[in-house]
């Protein structure tokens, strides 16, 4: 490497992929055996990948809605990065779901052709953000929870899920850090930002309980270490949440009726009207032009 071309070295022109829309990252599935492991129910594995994929897809959608609206240009970049990471996770998971299902669908059929009742995302990700405080509160809860899940999934007995999780852990660690820093800055910022951050924490808290209620699929897959029973990561989440709130001089919302019973959560296809609105936006163009190629 010549000293004379320091700038050239920096731009790394032989590595074009790095410059292209967030690609240029190693294929997480390179060399991974994509066969479904023996004794694993295909329907269950597919449904589990759909649920994790829907979480990422819908959370990404809400982040995409912030594009051109971020409080500062640097945050424009940061939020778009997070949205891109989650969209990437959604694509890998929905692709895996379709492959395991083996019914001729692909990631786009799953994303664009299911109605709200077919979506399995937790309701936390549907919620519209009233302001930036709501966004970072939701992002902190979401990424702290998802990081705990993905961390355990790196040892999933489905090698594809394990590989997707390994990639996701790096990304979501960064998302959690970004969100936590903002919660602290706003909580311990001005009087106004403190009040708004507290209001956002209060608003997001009732959505937390659902994250730790295992659904039937998770309960069936967890014993064979394919999936994670989300109730097992509750204490890890609580510790992170409490630590951030304390640093942010915020109060946890006391005694909220947050626990949901199985059968009535987003994982069961029970959603708020917000999801219907999201899907109208997400799917509208694709559905209005059937038979098109993109």
């Amino acid at each position: 490497m010549s000293f004379d071309a320091a700038y050239e070295a920096l731009t790394d022109h032989d590595d074009d992929a790095r410059w292209a829309y967030g690609t240029g990252f190693a294929d997480p599935l390179a060399g991974v055996d994509t066969a479904v492991p023996q004794d694993v129910d295909r329907g269950d594995l597919s449904a589990y990948c759909v649920a994790l994929g829907d979480d990422a897809l819908i959370m990404s959608h809400r982040l995409q809605q912030w594009v051109t609206r971020a409080p500062e240009l640097e945050d424009e970049l940061a939020l778009a990065n997070i949205a891109l990471d989650l969209l990437g996770q959604a694509r890998l998971l929905l692709t895996r779901a379709a492959e395991v299902e083996d019914a001729g669908r692909d990631e786009d059929a799953l994303a664009y052709l299911r109605d709200a009742t077919g979506f399995r995302n937790v309701r936390l990700v549907e919620r519209a953000d009233a302001d930036f405080a709501h966004l970072v509160a939701r992002l902190l809860v979401f990424s702290a929870w998802r990081l705990a899940l993905l961390d355990r999934l790196t040892t999933s007995t489905d090698p594809v899920l394990a590989a997707i999780a390994a990639k996701g852990v790096k990304e979501v660690t960064y998302h959690r850090d970004y969100a936590a820093q903002w919660v602290v800055r706003l909580g311990d910022g001005t009087d106004l930002s403190h009040d708004r951050m507290q209001a956002a924490v209060d608003a997001v808290t009732p959505l937390v309980g659902e994250l730790f209620v295992p659904d039937r699929v998770e309960l069936r897959l967890a014993p064979a270490a394919v999936a994670v029973d989300p109730s097992t990561v509750r204490s890890e989440f609580d510790a992170v949440w409490a630590q951030v709130l304390q640093a942010a001089t915020l109060q946890p919302l006391a005694a909220v009726a947050e626990e949901s019973a199985p059968g009535g959560t987003g994982r069961d296809g029970v959603h708020t009207p917000a999801l219907t609105e999201i899907l109208a936006e997400l799917q509208g163009v694709a559905r209005s032009l059937p038979g098109s190629v993109w």
Partner: peptide, 15 residues
């Protein structure tokens, strides 16, 4: 971005 008709196009446009 939010209305892109495929996930691949969505990722490209967002980036």
């Amino acid at each position: 971005i939010t209305r892109a008709p495929s996930l691949r196009r969505k990722a490209i446009l967002l980036a």
